[in-house]
Amino acid sequence: MKITINGGAVELPAGTSVGEAVRTLTSLTSGVAVAVNGEVVSRSAWESTPLADSDLVEVLTAVQGG
């Protein structure tokens, strides 16, 4: 299936979890938050939440600004 992580297209096996998708980007677990299709997925639900084809995944962290 094809999903979009932070604006980039990624090909992942069907049934890939949010947690597995995040780990394609970073090994960080703290200081990071995830939204799928505009809804926050809490960290405790990362592993139990499967992604679906064409999901939009945003992985955010704190940076200098504001």
């Binding site: 932070n6 604006g7 980007l25 992985v59 955010l60 962290t61 704190a62 940076v63 200098q64 600004g65």
Partner: peptide, 17 residues
Amino acid sequence: TTVAMRRLDPVARGSVL
């Protein structure tokens, strides 16, 4: 101290946090 939220940059070094 206030910080912004942005897409995670996998190659960023060091963190304001």
